[in-house]
Lab assay of single mutants.
Amino acid sequence: RMRTAFTSTQLLELEREFSSNMYLSRLRRIEIATYLNLSEKQVKIWFQNRRVKHKK
């Protein structure tokens, strides 16, 4: 599987969303994925990984 290289714009938006809410509803995940031109799965995994990073 290929590793996703997020653009700086995508990362900025993902981080902004994360700062306001660490957990996404499915609807919000779809909205963000569509807006950032990513798959729902990519957004889901990014949030999972970001939560782990946040815990450390």
Rank of each mutant, 00 (worst) to 15 (best):
R1Y: 07
R1C: 11
R1V: 11
R1T: 06
R1K: 14
R1I: 13
R1W: 08
R1F: 15
M2R: 08
M2D: 14
M2Y: 12
M2N: 11
R3I: 14
R3E: 15
R3F: 14
R3H: 14
R3A: 15
R3W: 13
R3K: 14
T4W: 09
T4Q: 12
T4V: 13
T4L: 09
T4A: 12
T4Y: 14
T4S: 13
T4R: 08
T4H: 11
A5V: 11
A5W: 09
A5R: 06
A5Q: 10
F6W: 08
F6Q: 01
F6S: 04
F6V: 09
T7P: 03
T7G: 04
T7I: 03
T7F: 01
T7Q: 04
T7A: 05
S8N: 07
S8H: 10
S8M: 08
S8D: 13
S8E: 14
S8K: 10
T9A: 14
T9Y: 10
T9N: 11
T9S: 13
T9M: 09
T9V: 13
T9F: 08
T9G: 12
Q10N: 00
Q10Y: 03
Q10F: 04
Q10D: 05
Q10G: 03
Q10W: 03
Q10T: 07
Q10C: 04
L11V: 10
L11P: 00
L11N: 06
L11F: 05
L11A: 12
L12K: 10
L12D: 14
L12R: 10
L12P: 03
L12S: 14
L12G: 12
L12H: 12
L12M: 11
L12Q: 15
L12V: 12
E13F: 06
E13P: 04
E13T: 07
E13A: 08
E13K: 02
L14E: 01
L14S: 01
L14C: 00
L14W: 00
L14D: 02
L14G: 02
E15S: 02
E15I: 02
E15P: 02
E15N: 02
E15V: 02
E15R: 01
E15Q: 02
E15M: 00
R16W: 05
R16G: 07
R16K: 12
R16T: 09
R16D: 10
R16H: 09
E17D: 00
E17I: 04
E17S: 04
E17K: 03
E17G: 03
E17M: 00
E17R: 01
E17T: 02
F18W: 13
F18A: 03
F18S: 01
F18T: 00
F18V: 02
F18P: 01
F18D: 03
S19F: 07
S19P: 04
S19I: 11
S19K: 10
S19L: 12
S19T: 13
S20D: 15
S20P: 01
S20K: 04
S20T: 13
S20G: 09
S20H: 10
N21Q: 05
N21T: 03
N21F: 03
N21C: 09
N21G: 06
N21W: 02
N21S: 07
N21Y: 05
N21V: 03
M22E: 14
M22G: 08
M22D: 13
M22V: 08
M22Y: 09
M22T: 10
Y23N: 12
Y23Q: 09
Y23S: 09
Y23K: 08
Y23P: 10
Y23L: 09
L24S: 02
L24N: 05
L24I: 04
L24K: 05
L24T: 05
L24A: 08
L24F: 01
L24Q: 00
L24C: 11
S25N: 15
S25Q: 00
S25L: 04
S25Y: 00
S25M: 00
S25P: 08
R26F: 14
R26V: 15
R26Y: 15
R26L: 15
R26T: 15
R26D: 15
L27V: 07
L27N: 07
L27Y: 15
L27P: 07
L27I: 10
R28L: 03
R28H: 00
R28E: 00
R28W: 04
R28P: 00
R28F: 01
R29W: 05
R29Q: 13
R29F: 01
R29D: 01
R29N: 09
R29H: 03
R29M: 06
R29I: 08
I30V: 11
I30A: 09
I30H: 00
I30R: 05
E31L: 03
E31F: 02
E31I: 06
E31C: 01
E31Y: 02
I32V: 06
I32T: 04
I32N: 02
I32G: 01
I32W: 01
I32E: 04
I32M: 05
I32L: 08
I32H: 03
A33E: 01
A33T: 00
A33D: 02
A33V: 03
T34Y: 05
T34M: 07
T34K: 08
T34P: 01
T34G: 05
T34D: 06
T34N: 09
Y35D: 07
Y35R: 08
Y35G: 07
Y35P: 01
Y35F: 13
Y35M: 13
Y35Q: 10
L36V: 03
L36E: 01
L36R: 03
L36Y: 05
L36M: 07
L36A: 02
L36F: 03
N37W: 04
N37H: 14
N37S: 10
N37A: 07
N37D: 11
N37G: 12
N37I: 03
N37K: 09
L38Y: 00
L38K: 03
L38N: 01
L38C: 12
L38I: 10
L38P: 03
L38H: 01
L38Q: 02
L38R: 02
L38T: 10
S39L: 04
S39V: 04
S39Y: 04
S39C: 05
S39K: 02
S39G: 06
S39M: 03
E40L: 05
E40Q: 04
E40M: 06
K41Q: 15
K41T: 14
K41P: 15
K41L: 15
K41E: 15
K41N: 15
K41W: 15
Q42R: 07
Q42E: 14
Q42S: 11
V43C: 02
V43A: 01
V43Y: 01
K44P: 02
K44M: 15
K44G: 13
K44Y: 15
K44S: 14
K44C: 14
I45P: 06
I45E: 15
I45K: 09
I45F: 09
I45L: 14
I45D: 15
I45S: 13
W46H: 06
W46N: 04
W46L: 03
F47L: 04
F47M: 02
F47N: 04
F47H: 02
F47Q: 00
F47Y: 02
Q48R: 06
Q48S: 14
Q48T: 09
Q48A: 14
N49G: 10
N49S: 12
R50Y: 05
R50M: 10
R50C: 07
R50K: 14
R50F: 06
R51Y: 11
R51H: 10
R51M: 14
R51S: 13
R51F: 14
R51N: 09
R51L: 15
V52A: 14
V52R: 12
V52F: 10
V52W: 09
V52I: 12
V52E: 13
V52S: 14
V52C: 12
V52Y: 13
K53S: 13
K53P: 07
K53E: 15
K53T: 11
K53Q: 15
K53Y: 11
K53F: 09
K53D: 13
H54N: 06
H54M: 09
H54K: 06
H54T: 11
H54L: 10
H54W: 10
K55R: 09
K55D: 12
K55Q: 13
K56M: 10
